[in-house]
């Protein structure tokens, strides 16, 4: 019973200390830029992946030359806008 009481006490005290520790630290400002940058990088990756898939579809003959050109140009335009936004944010 003593061992159990000891274990429970240790568990409770350790948990409480671990939880409240940040409250005694200085507050840090949260930069929204980080999240925007993450989103933009992800968008870029998604567009690149889409271009890759479009190329595969075209190579496999699943899509006509005309549709391929239109879709690829559209994706390239989107990717360049995202890259521009990333550059602007990094300035």
């Amino acid at each position: 019973m003593i061992l159990e009481f000891f274990l429970i006490s240790v568990m409770f005290i350790a948990s409480a200390l671990y939880a409240v520790y940040p409250l005694f630290q200085p507050a840090q400002a949260l930069s929204s830029d980080v999240e925007i940058q993450e989103t933009l990088h992800l968008k870029k990756r998604v567009f690149y992946q889409e271009i890759k898939e479009l190329d595969i579809d075209y190579e496999l003959g699943n899509i006509s030359q005309e549709d391929y050109t239109i879709a690829r140009d559209e994706l390239k335009r989107s990717v360049s806008i995202v890259i521009k936004d990333i550059k602007q944010l990094n300035k």
């Binding site: 479009l54 579809d57 699943n62 899509i63 549709d67």
Partner: peptide, 16 residues
């Protein structure tokens, strides 16, 4: 898997 994104062209449809 035989359909393309957006639209499958007629020739692509027949071939696939």
């Amino acid at each position: 898997p035989l359909l393309a994104w957006r639209k499958t062209s007629k020739t692509g449809f027949i071939r696939n």
